[in-house]
Structures are given as structure tokens and as C-alpha cells.
């Protein structure tokens, strides 16, 4: 069970307090109706799924309830950093 640092609580807590929320920085288009089918498909479904450095979202669902972003290596499962939603991509 991995340990995750919640940037809002500023504490490392066990994974079972958190819910993974998929790839990070997949912003919802401001005007979805202007999107082509391809663009909308990319927003909905296309994911990076990298072997290595991965930007992902977590929610501290059994803690403060906040969504935040993380950079984690998907081969070692080790976190590089976590940061608050809205902060620039790291």
C-alpha cells in the first residue's frame, strides 16, 4: 500500500485514504461544442499511459476531500512530487 503525500493536508497518508482519479492535466475544453469528434475523443478517452514518469490525479477522499496532482514513476510506483490542483504541471 503506497504512501501518498496530500499537498493540502501536508501529510503522507496510506493509499486507502485516497482515490485515484486518472491522468492529470486533461482539461475539459472551455467550449466542448466547438470540438471536433477527434478532439473530443482525445479529451474523453486518449491517455498517456507511460512507462515511467506519469502525471496523475488523486483525491484525498477519506481525508480533506481535495483533488490534487502527482508525478509518479509507473515502473517503480515511487512518487516524485504531489501538488495542488491548479498549480502548473511539474
Amino acid at each position: 500500500m503506497i504512501l501518498i503525500h496530500c499537498p493540502y493536508c501536508d501529510e503522507k497518508r496510506p493509499e486507502i485514504e485516497f482515490a485515484n482519479a486518472g491522468q492529470a492535466h486533461v482539461a475539459r475544453p472551455l467550449d466542448p461544442s466547438s470540438q471536433s469528434d477527434e478532439e473530443w475523443e482525445a479529451y474523453l478517452f486518449i491517455r498517456a499511459n507511460p512507462r515511467g514518469r506519469h502525471h496523475e490525479r488523486w483525491r484525498h477522499v477519506h481525508g480533506c476531500g481535495r483533488f490534487f496532482n502527482a508525478v509518479r514513476d509507473t515502473v517503480t510506483d515511487k512518487f516524485e512530487t504531489t501538488y495542488k490542483a491548479g498549480e502548473p504541471r511539474r
Binding site: 475539459r28 490525479r57 483525491r59 481535495r66 490542483a85 491548479g86
Partner: peptide
Amino acid sequence: LNMMEDYLQTEWP
């Protein structure tokens, strides 16, 4: 609730 929080916190803060 989770879905609404997601949109509220991350898309429309």
C-alpha cells in the same frame, strides 16, 4: 458527490 466535487474543484474552481 465525487463527480460533482471533481468538476467543482478541478474544472470550475
